[in-house]
Design a binder for these strands. Structure first.
Lengths: 253, 253
DNA sequence: CCTGTTTCTATCGTATGACTTTATCCGGGA
DNA sequence: TCCCGGATAAAGTCATACGATAGAAACAGG
């Protein structure tokens, strides 16, 4: 599952050394390879484990501690923080989750969040959108419709569609949820990609209906249609997850 | 406005040097003293500006870059990132905002977010709560009822009430919004503190009604009542903000 | 034998200086 | 005008040293 989630994680140059270290540690933490409370490699030992200087290692730890993944205390060492303190909505943390092949529960939880947030966002977007906002949303929709299903430009257009709606809400804190939503969408599209056009055309219609409501500035309608969109997406995703689980079980049996 | 928001910002030892530096930089960024695109002091010059070693300074910058506040690039320098990339829902970023006396728009946006999220959270809590969850929520409510209005234990109990509801949803990503909600509440309570008991008793009744719905496991009722609670809280907060703005205008005039 | 205190030590925190890498700027040449 | 390449400035990385602190172990007293 080496999906490269490109959803605007920190534009942190990925070939920086400390960045790679942070990534390695983060994935180990999130997969559970380093369970909560586990000590990270001692700052001095790491010559053997990963050959990197203390400086780079410490900066990686600082980066992760800002996201609540680790806690460093003098003498007792740097430990993996309990999951409750992780900032699961942080774009990087989310990206690492998807890199680690998230379980079904996590996907369901994220869709649940989408279901709470996106309809409301669509309502606000319908009420508050400027003409420029609308153009952006329409352009994204065209990008979805005019490109081959599940191709990269199509996926990007889908993400842009949802992000543009968040942008139109004019509510910056709310907009901070866009990365979480987009990561969820990207993951579900990745699952659906191998499939036929069935899901795609259904989804396209859902999107068009939302767009239409926003054009009309009808907030309630936009919210209702966005609910439908999210629910449809969740259902098809769950169906695929179930199929995959069955296939995996069959493989291992 | 030196409100000390204690809502579980990172348990980062506040007397660590790099932590102080991060704090100073963050507040300067969030207040707008360092506008987007502004260069942070050069890593070599800072001997003069703040007397701190490059190491500590760099770790502070890494910490902030993880929250999207700054972007560092070789040659061009470390710059304040545009606001769209800030992780406004990060507990630390939120705490810094409140330290910098947030404007009314920001408060409204946060309440809007509460209004989208908390009723849904209350619905889930009513449906999924364990007995332990319920005990926790009830204990928090008692803490609100049995302590003097706007005293510290009362405020903490209020925060605990809302946090316990999020915990009962069993949805970790959703729970990540709890700090944002709590910070908002804390700020609004801080505003109300000087006032009489009027708001407090009204709020207490709102909370009791929510609790009652959760006891009954009635999701729709819990959601509706939580909506009422948030709206009441928003209205009283806005009234106080308006009053304060008027008072300020009067002072400066 | 248990408990409280002291000392010891491992580990993080901070400082410093040197060197490397990278991106921008600028000037020369096609 | 455009492209290329070197100069350059800033961040990135490394090695080393020392300070501070919280556990652990040793020790003293009951």
């Amino acid at each position: 599952m080496q999906l490269h989630v490109k959803v605007r994680a920190t534009r942190l140059n990925p070939d920086r050394l400390f960045s790679q270290v942070a990534h390695r540690l983060a994935v180990a933490i999130i997969t559970g390879a380093s369970p909560a409370g586990a000590l990270l490699p001692n700052e001095d030992d790491l010559k053997g484990e990963i050959s990197v200087s203390r400086t780079a290692y410490r900066e990686a730890v600082k980066f992760l501690s800002g996201k609540g993944l680790v806690e460093a205390r003098p003498k007792s060492g740097t430990r993996v923080a309990p999951r409750e303190t992780w900032n699961l909505l942080d774009p990087d943390v989310l990206a690492w989750h998807f890199k680690a092949d998230p379980n079904e529960k996590f996907i369901r939880d994220l869709f649940e969040l989408r279901l709470f947030v996106e309809p409301s966002a669509a309502r606000l977007a319908a009420q508050r959108r400027s003409d420029a906002d609308l153009r952006r949303i329409e352009a994204a929709f065209r990008g979805m419709a005019e490109n081959p299903p599940y191709a990269e430009p199509t996926v990007n257009a889908d993400l842009a569609f949802h992000e543009a709606i968040f942008a139109a809400t004019r509510n910056p804190p709310l907009q901070c949820l866009a990365p979480a939503v987009c990561a969820t969408i990207q993951w579900s599209l990745f699952l659906k990609a191998p499939d036929d056009q069935f899901f795609f055309t259904a989804s396209l219609i859902d999107h068009e209906r939302v767009l239409d409501a926003i054009v009309q500035r009808d907030g309630d309608l936009a919210a209702a249609r966005m609910s439908g969109l999210v629910i449809d997406s969740l259902n098809s995703t769950l169906r695929l997850l179930a199929g995959r689980a069955g296939a995996d079980a069959g493989k291992t049996a």
